[in-house]
Structures are given as C-alpha cells and as structure tokens.
Design a protein around this nucleic acid. Structure first.
Lengths: 195, 195
DNA sequence: GTGTCATGTCTACAAGTGTAGACTAGTCAC
DNA sequence: GTGACTAGTCTACACTTGTAGACATGACAC
C-alpha cells in the first residue's frame, strides 16, 4: 500500500528516453549549455541542469566527472560552432556587425556564455583557453602589422557589444537597426583594414 | 585559567577603531568595494567582507540592510568617481584609450565591478541603472546624429576592453603599450567624430 | 528464463549562504 | 559614579550547494 508515499518530488522526469546512455549524456550537455548561457557557471546548480534533462543530479557527475568538467565540455561545444567570425577577410567586419544585431535573445552564444560565467575563477580559467584559441585564429586572418593587438581588440568589441545587449539589456543595442549596424561595421573595419 | 579557551577564531579583528559608527560603516563600504570588484556579487560573502573590515557579518546588515543594498551603495560610490570619461569632447577618445591601458590591475574600476557581477539578476538590475545614467551623460556630450547609439557603442567598447584585460587576463591588452593605445584611440574616435 | 552489467536513483553529508534575534559592552551626559 | 543608548558580537536557523556511496532496475546475451 505504498505506491508513492512521498509526494514531495516535483520532478515528472519525462522518461521518454529510458536507458540510453548517449542520448542522456547529450540531453545533459544541451541542458547545461542553455543553463550556463542563461545564468552563468555559478548561477545554476547541477540539480537544475539535471532536472531540465530529465535525470538525477548524480548522473551529471557520473557522465562528466564534475560540474567544472561539464562546463569545460560545454565551452568546447559552443566555441566549436561559428561565433560571429567568418573566413572571408573582406566581409569580416560586415559579418560580425550583422551577426551581432541579428541574433535573437534566445540563441546560445559563446560570448554571452563567457560573460555570464566570468566571475568564477575556475570558469575563467577554462574560458581563457577558449578565447586564446579564438584570438590566435583571428590573428592569423588579420595579417599585417599588429595583427595580435587588432585581434584582441576585435574580440573585445564583440564581448562588449554582447555585454550591453544581453547582460545589461541595453534597449539601444538589443533591438538594433541599420544605424547600429553601420557604426559597428565602421568600428570593425578599423581593425580589419588597418595596416 | 581560561584566557583564550577557543583558538578556532582566525579573526584578529584589528580593533584599532573602537565604537566609531561612521568609520566602521566606511570600512565596510571600502571592503565591499574591493571584494565585489575582485570576486563579483556572488563570489564573495558578507562574512568575508565583514572580516576584511574587522567586524562581524551582522554589522553589514545592520548598517546597509542587506547584501543587495550594500552592493547598490558600492555601485553608487564607484560610478560617482571618474570612470574613463572626460568632459572635454575633443580628447574624449584619447582620454579613454590612455586610461584603459594605463590602469594598474589593482585599481577599482566601475566596468570591472560591472562585469564581475553581471551574472546575478539582482546585481544586474542595479548595474543597469548605473550604466543607463552613464549612457545618458555620454549621449549629451556626443552631440550630433545618432548620439544615443554612439554612446551605447562607446560604453560597449569600454566594457569589452575591460573584460579582456581583467577577466580573461589577456596579455595583449593587459600590459598594453603604444600600439594598443593608438588603435583604441582610432576606435573611440570613430564614435566621437562621427556625424 | 536467467545472469550480468551498465544505467539511473535515493539518501546523506559536510560546507557555505544570508539573515534574524538575543545578548554584551563601550561611551557619553549628568 | 551611574544610567542609558548605541555599537558590536554570538548563536542559530533555514536553505542551497557539489558530491560520495549504496542501492535499484532496465536491456541484452545466452
């Protein structure tokens, strides 16, 4: 006569996926990706991530070792995708400018993830490696004098815009139009065309 | 025979200041200013802030109401000081560029405080008001077309540079020299001189 | 059917959080 | 000296955090 003696479990656990390791791991990763992007490394707990994935908190550590390692894998995944940088040098500035203003708020973006998690030292260490690689990649494209410095400034500009847009929810830059795009392109072009 | 029966108190508590409300309040505020700037709103606890000020955690709430209100007052104080913006329009870009690269890592800066605390929703709400005011002030100076957008982009650039310098500890922009200063000035001038 | 192992859950712990209330003690007026 | 008020402390609570270990359970080979 004890079917569910304890109702304090507000966790429906979809359970559509039963005993599928790969799918479960992927579900946790996706859940973590969204959660970390929205609330930052410190702003979300493993229980919350697990619940959104339909599993228990312990499975997170089982599959990823620790919260920190999970975060590192999330960072890897996010920065594998295209983040506002194209291979075509002449249109680099235009691409970044349009990408910045065109993105809807819901999208997961590497720079937003970065900014939201930048307070925690462990997260920062992981993020530093990711941005370093991004900088090297950009530096190789921006050939010419002071490519190193210009690449760093390019990334700084990307980060700053994202900070104003998502973190501080600037109405000016969040729902931006032609004017902002044009100014942004001008800024990026200073760094791209500089020689 | 019980001079100090309990040595588990690792809190020397300077106590040079005895029963001075104003000085204690100021000490807590300064301690919070440094702590919040270094570790962010979520990265530091009231006990830690209090200990650095030589008092007990409860005094923080006694003087400031709550951690959140303490943070709000810290933000007010920091953004009252000069933060990389001058009243002289022609040298605005030069001033910001030089200020950014000249600052030593130990200094308390409003934009660093902002970036470190940007993850917490309560802190963000407070910071949003601060940056909004800063933007209005800047917008009034940058007269001409699209002053609103140019001001927002100006602040975004400041934030981005600070993010790369302090948070991600970019060696390129942290210990920066003439090259970075020149590029930065060129970027700011795009926003200042644009008409 | 049955054994076996990976997959997933439950309970628990130790640490840390912000804060409330009761308490102690210093300082100033008289 | 002494009373009174304020500056400061102590203990405690309710909560959340990441994680460890023991336990349950589903799926597949034979």
């Amino acid at each position: 006569m004890t079917p569910q003696p304890n109702p304090p479990d507000p966790d429906p656990a979809p359970s559509a996926r039963t005993r599928n390791a790969a799918a479960t791991r992927e579900a946790i990763l996706q859940s973590a990706l969204v959660a970390f992007t929205q609330h930052g490394y410190n702003g979300v707990g493993v229980r919350e991530i697990a619940r959104a994935a339909g599993v228990t908190a312990m499975l997170v550590n089982r599959y990823f070792g620790s919260k920190e390692q999970l975060f590192a894998e999330v960072v890897d995944v996010v920065f594998s995708g295209s983040t506002l940088i194209t291979d075509d040098l002449p249109s680099l500035g235009r691409f970044a400018a349009r990408g910045l203003v065109a993105s809807e708020p819901r999208s997961v973006d590497g720079f937003v993830l970065m900014l939201r998690s930048i307070a925690d030292p462990r997260a920062t260490e992981i993020l530093r490696r990711a941005i370093d690689e991004r900088q090297r990649q950009l530096e190789a494209m921006l050939s010419g004098a002071h490519a190193h410095e210009r690449a760093a400034l390019f990334l700084a500009l990307l980060l700053g815009i994202r900070a104003m847009q998502h973190m501080l929810a600037s109405p000016t830059l969040a729902g931006a139009g032609e004017v902002v795009t044009d100014h942004l392109e001008a800024l990026f072009d200073v760094l791209v065309e500089r020689r």
